[in-house]
Simulated scan of single mutants.
Amino acid sequence: MKETLKPKEEDLYKPIQRYFKRHGYDVYGEVKDCDITLVKEDELVIIELKLNLSVDLLIQATKRQRMTESVYIAVPKPKYNLRSKRWRDTCHLVRRLELGLILVSLNGSRKKVEVVMDPTPFDRKKSLNRNKRKRQSIMTEINGRSGDYNIGGSTRKQIMTAYRENCIQIACYLQHAGELSPKALVQLGTGNKTASILTKNYYGWFERIRRGIYILSEKGKNEVEEYPDLLAYYRKNIPTTKTEKDKL
């Protein structure tokens, strides 16, 4: 059985050398600790080679940016899907650092070089504008919470979202009043998603006893007790409206 040789960093050199020579560059290996240097007239390009795209490689490449703006990192082409979120996130980081990225296919007798991106200035303003909706969704979520009820970095724990908190608020008011309509709940400050929350009843906490009137289900009575801090907060701040006075 033929043994498969593990690739080495130097296996990347020849394909890259041939590629850039075809594009008119003079190519030099190992100059002042730089893996590859390219020269065309007054242009200086530095390429750092590694078998894996690691933090160490990114640090090394950003140090080379002290000498020139044109710095690439070159790695073997990954075996995982290049359309995956993992790869998109990797490319974003490389682009954010204003580095170029080269992939080298080492399979087969003919090695293929692909320049995925050139080193260009990162347009932070353009990036922020492109992600306005994501920013707004974060602000909406924050504005929908009454406080901080999660521990950052925790896993396998139920996250207190604005939606869940809204459900707890509705449950608290129903527990206090016994039965209420969506309109009455909105008047108490449960927000414009109240009717949708009651209708969809995602957690099974609510029960419609007649048209337009809801109570807290047995499941709801039991499960909302798992959130004593929020219950105490909403019980303390239950507003009183004419509608609720009439109901009580």
Rank of each mutant, 00 (worst) to 15 (best):
P182V: 03
E218P: 06
N81M: 03
T155G: 00
P15G: 03
N131S: 15
K193W: 03
S137V: 07
I168C: 08
D11M: 13
E10G: 05
A61D: 01
E218D: 15
I142W: 04
S105L: 06
G189L: 05
T90C: 00
Q158V: 15
Y19V: 02
K125D: 15
S54K: 08
I59D: 10
V45L: 01
L5G: 04
F122S: 08
H23K: 15
I209N: 10
G220Q: 01
E3Y: 13
K77A: 11
T62R: 02
K193V: 04
R135D: 12
L57N: 03
R88W: 06
R22P: 00
N201P: 06
N237D: 06
Y28N: 02
R133Q: 14
I102L: 11
R64M: 07
E207G: 01
D11N: 12
N237S: 06
N81H: 10
K200S: 10
D26W: 06
I59H: 14
N192C: 10
Q169A: 09
L93F: 03
L12V: 04
I215N: 03
V115C: 11
D35P: 06
K247E: 13
V116K: 11
G189R: 08
G178P: 05
Y13V: 13
N192K: 14
P7H: 09
R145T: 07
P76A: 04
V186Q: 15
N143Y: 10
P76T: 05
R88N: 10
I102E: 05
L82N: 04
D33F: 05
E218R: 11
S154Q: 05
N192W: 04
L188A: 13
K6H: 12
H23L: 15
I102T: 05
C167A: 14
R130D: 15
D26E: 13
Y234C: 02
L51Y: 09
K77D: 08
Y203G: 00
H92C: 09
Y163I: 11
R211G: 13
E223P: 01
G212E: 09
Q175G: 04
D56P: 00
T37P: 01
S109D: 13
Y72D: 04
N129C: 06
D11Y: 11
Q17D: 12
L99A: 05
V224S: 01
D26A: 12
K134M: 12
E10S: 14
I215L: 03
G220Y: 02
G100V: 00
R135N: 12
E179R: 12
S105N: 15
N143C: 05
H92Y: 10
M67K: 12
K134S: 13
K14V: 11
F206Y: 11
K242N: 10
L230M: 14
G178I: 06
A232H: 13
L57W: 05
R235A: 04
R66F: 07
I238T: 14
P76W: 02
E225V: 07
N81V: 02
I159S: 07
I159H: 07
R88P: 02
F122H: 07
E98Y: 01
E179N: 12
E9H: 06
R110F: 14
D123A: 02
M139W: 14
I209D: 01
E69K: 15
I151F: 09
T199D: 09
S137Q: 14
R124F: 14
T140S: 09
M1E: 12
L99V: 01
L44Y: 09
K63Y: 04
H176V: 03
C91D: 00
H92T: 11
T68E: 03
I215Y: 02
A171Q: 00
P121L: 10
H176I: 08
